[in-house]
Amino acid sequence: MNQTTQTPTGLSVRGLGGSASGPPRARARRRLHSEQWAAWAFLTPVTVYLLAFFAYPLYRNLDLSLRDYTVRSFVSGGAEFIGLANHRKVLGDPAFAPALTHTVVFTLVSLAFQFAIGLALAVFFAKSFRLSAILRALFLVPWLLPLIVSASTWSWMLNSDSGVVNAALRLVGIAPVHWLTSPQWSLLSVILANVWIGIPFNLVVLYNGLQSIPAQLYEAAQIDGANGWQQFWRVTFPLLRPVSAITLLLGLVYTLKVFDLIWIMTRGGPSDSSTTLATWSYRLSFGNLLPEFGPGAAVGNLLIVMALAAGLIYIRAQKRQYQR
């Protein structure tokens, strides 16, 4: 049982993909065999599902990135296989370095604020109070809106001349800010909107994670004389770790691929100041009269690699934690 953590109160927690503990051999092998059968029986639906619905798009994306697609060969086929030339082209593009920097800043800052605010709200809502269920549900409303509407609303509010944010600033005597139209502010503005969109996700997942922590643990901690802060750090935080980790990982994946929000608010501009890899990929493939599918898909692949790297780090961190 070396791969489980012992919490102060004796509940064991294991993370995603934690591997088997080792019972005695001979009998174990037979049992392992039948266990494997059962395990994969449970996995069959999702495997079939993945093969049926993800394989073709994934293959399309790879194929697009490895061939020299023009609009003509996109339609009639016969695009030449050019290996990694599309990837080399985008890596050598002067737009690459800023796009990468913006992606990293956009992702990390969004993630940090979404998670912190989401966790704070989850803790706040964890103790039920009058209206708490309704208010918690209302926090989900932003997710009911098609992104084209919520992003347009943000762009509306942040408009330099007729936006409500600048109108409010003017009321308190601050000069208007060109939120979306100046290279200094545009990235910050799209991060702001993205944090807003991400809060409900973090709130709901973390809140339900909190609900899964047995109340007895808090009672025990209280008997031991722990105050609220200590309870948070000693009970809540460690027990919430698997859920937190997956929330962050998923948040990272979702933030990396955000393009529509930025596209609607700034088109990645002005002067590429809010262009991330995802918006760049979209602009190459769809944002122009003459689509460049190959380079667009190549940028998409870079994003997949970034997400995979994060996934590896996640699994590594999980393992180290359990081996302690």
Binding site: V46, L250, G300, G311
Partner: peptide, 17 residues
Amino acid sequence: RALSFVLLMAQMIPGII
């Protein structure tokens, strides 16, 4: 774990693709 990885990767495929 490989399957978990594929799931992670699956989410990165752009919606339009």
